[in-house]
Design a protein around this nucleic acid. Structure first.
Lengths: 139, 139
DNA sequence: TAAATTAACTTGCAAAAAACAAGTTAATTT
DNA sequence: AAATTAACTTGTTTTTTGCAAGTTAATTTA
C-alpha cells in the first residue's frame, strides 16, 4: 500500500498521511493514554478492527510517525513509540480538542480538560512536548 | 447518511465529523482560496469526485460547519459559506500547515508561507479569524 | 427565441477500503 | 505440557470511493 499525494498543498499533503478516522487515534493513544502495544490499541473505546490497526501501524511507520522497538518487558510484545515527527502532531491534536470541546458533545472529563487547555494552551503544549521529546532517540 | 460517534473522546468526536480526506479541503477552499460554489470546489487540484463532493457538502451542512445561501450573482449557483463553527477550524488547519511544512514535501510557495506563519502564528491566526468572522451572520 | 452552456446534482457500476469473524505463530504463563 | 497472550493474517461481507454518464433548472449565446 502506498500513499498518493493528491497535490502539493500542505493541508492536502498532511491529510494524505493522517487524514483518516484512525491514524490520529493511534497517535493520541501513544501520546496521551500511555499505550504502546498492539493489544492496548485494540482495547481503545473506538474499537478499531485488527486488520485496520495492522495497516495503520505499518502506514504510520512508513511515514516515520511511529517506530517499532523491542518491548522492555517481553519479547512477545512490540513497543510502538512516536518519532519527533509524530510528537510534532501534538499541536494538531490540541486544536482538535479545543474545537471539539467548544462545538461537539464530549465527556465532562474532556470539558474540564478543555477548560484548562484553553486557559494555558501554550504552556501546556510546551510542557507536554518537552516531556514527550525526553524519551526519544531520533531528535 | 449519519455520523456515528465512536466514543466521547474529543479527538475521536472531531474525527467523526472532519476526519476524512476531503472535508477539511472544502473548508480550506472556502477559508483560504476564495471558493464558494460546487464547481469551484470541483476544480481544485485534488480532484474530488462529484458524488463525494455532494455527500461531503451535505455532511458539512448537517454538522453546521457550512451553510447554503443564494448566490449574489446568479440563481443557478449556490453560495456555500462557513459558519462560526467552520471558521473555528482555522487553528487546526494552521497547525496542519505548520506540521506539513516541517515534515512533508510541499510546494515552495507553501514553504514561504510556512515561514511567515511559524514566526507570527498567533497574530496571523487572530487576523484571519477576525476577517472571516466579519462576513458571517451566525456569530 | 431556440440552442448551447453552465451549475448543481443524481445514478449506476467497478474498485478499493473497512468491518467482522476466524485462524496462525511465537512467546509467555500456568 | 497445556493454556493464554501478543501480534498479526486470511477470507468474506458491507461500505465507501472513483469514474462515467445522465438529469434539471438557470443562464448565456447565436
Amino acid at each position: 500500500m502506498k500513499i498518493k499525494q493528491r497535490s502539493d498543498c500542505p493541508i492536502s499533503s498532511a491529510l494524505d498521511v493522517i487524514g483518516d478516522k484512525w491514524s490520529l487515534l493511534i497517535v493520541r493513544d501513544i501520546m496521551m493514554n500511555g499505550k504502546n502495544t498492539y493489544n492496548e490499541f485494540l482495547k481503545s473505546n473506538e474499537k478499531i478492527a485488527t486488520n485496520v490497526l495492522a495497516d495503520r501501524l505499518s502506514m504510520l511507520e512508513k511515514s516515520d510517525i511511529i517506530t517499532k522497538e523491542e518491548h522492555p518487558e517481553s519479547k512477545a510484545k512490540i513497543y510502538y513509540k512516536l518519532t519527533k515527527k509524530g510528537i510534532s502532531l501534538l499541536p494538531v491534536l490540541i486544536e482538535l480538542i479545543l474545537w471539539a470541546d467548544e462545538y461537539l458533545p464530549v465527556s465532562s472529563a474532556a470539558i474540564t480538560y478543555g477548560y484548562a487547555l484553553k486557559k494555558d494552551k501554550e504552556k501546556i503544549t510546551r510542557q507536554m512536548m518537552r516531556t514527550l521529546l525526553k524519551h526519544i532517540s531520533d531528535k
